[in-house]
């Protein structure tokens, strides 16, 4: 009797464990299948997106090809070449015009001052960095004074600057003052600053 009871107890313990294990196994399997399905869905999505990108790329490629063909048509090629050449040339012209010194203005102003002061120009050197060296003769100190006054006049402050007297000599052999003046011509560019597009008169 006692043996029989022990047997029954043992059977109950095993049955309980088996039931428990079976339950766990089922739950785990469901979870694993769910995860596997999820992974499969993710992979399918990735492949699907990749295929979509391929088809999109192909569509873009065909559109690009037709756009390229349109751009490469003779008429458009001619238009593009003309436009590019025109812009390059105009830029070059603009660069040249803005870097060129309007020497006619500097000479015009200088000739006026020399005439007004009664001085004579003996030698001069103008360079495109604006440096000017003017050498000449003045019959009297008053004439020379007039010339210096003219060069340093406020009205010409935007035209001439950094006026430096390099030398001034008077010898009895020559009855006049010989001078050398260094100065800077401050204007630059042949194009009008306001962009009016009219050549300077």
């Amino acid at each position: 009797m006692a043996e029989s009871t022990r047997d029954i107890n043992l059977i109950t313990g095993i049955a309980e464990e088996e039931v428990k294990t079976g339950g766990y196994r089922r739950k785990i399997n469901v979870v694993v299948i769910a995860i596997l399905l999820l992974v499969a869905v993710v992979i399918a999505c990735l492949f699907g997106y990749w295929l979509y990108l391929i088809s999109w790329g192909t569509r873009i490629e065909s559109q690009t090809k037709s756009a390229q063909d349109e751009i490469s048509s003779k008429e458009n090629q001619r238009k593009e070449i003309t436009r590019r050449a025109l812009v390059v040339k105009v830029d070059e012209a603009q660069k040249f015009l803005s870097s060129t010194v309007p020497f006619s203005i500097s000479l015009d102003k200088l000739i006026g001052l020399l005439k007004d002061s009664g001085s004579t120009l003996d030698s001069s050197k103008f360079t495109n960095d604006g440096k000017m060296t003017v050498g000449g003769e003045a019959p009297a100190s008053d004439n020379f004074g007039k010339l210096v006054d003219g060069l340093t006049n406020e009205q010409l402050a935007k035209t001439f600057g950094n006026v430096n007297l390099t030398s001034l000599t008077f010898t009895e052999d020559k009855p006049f003052y010989t001078f050398t003046i260094d100065l800077r011509f401050l204007e630059k560019g042949l194009l009008k600053k306001n962009g009016g597009g009219t050549p300077e008169k």
């Binding site: 120009l121 001069s124 103008f126 360079t127 495109n128």
Partner: peptide, 9 residues
């Protein structure tokens, strides 16, 4: 454009 001018009497 003129790059430089030299004048001599």
């Amino acid at each position: 454009g003129v790059s430089s001018i030299g004048a001599l009497r």
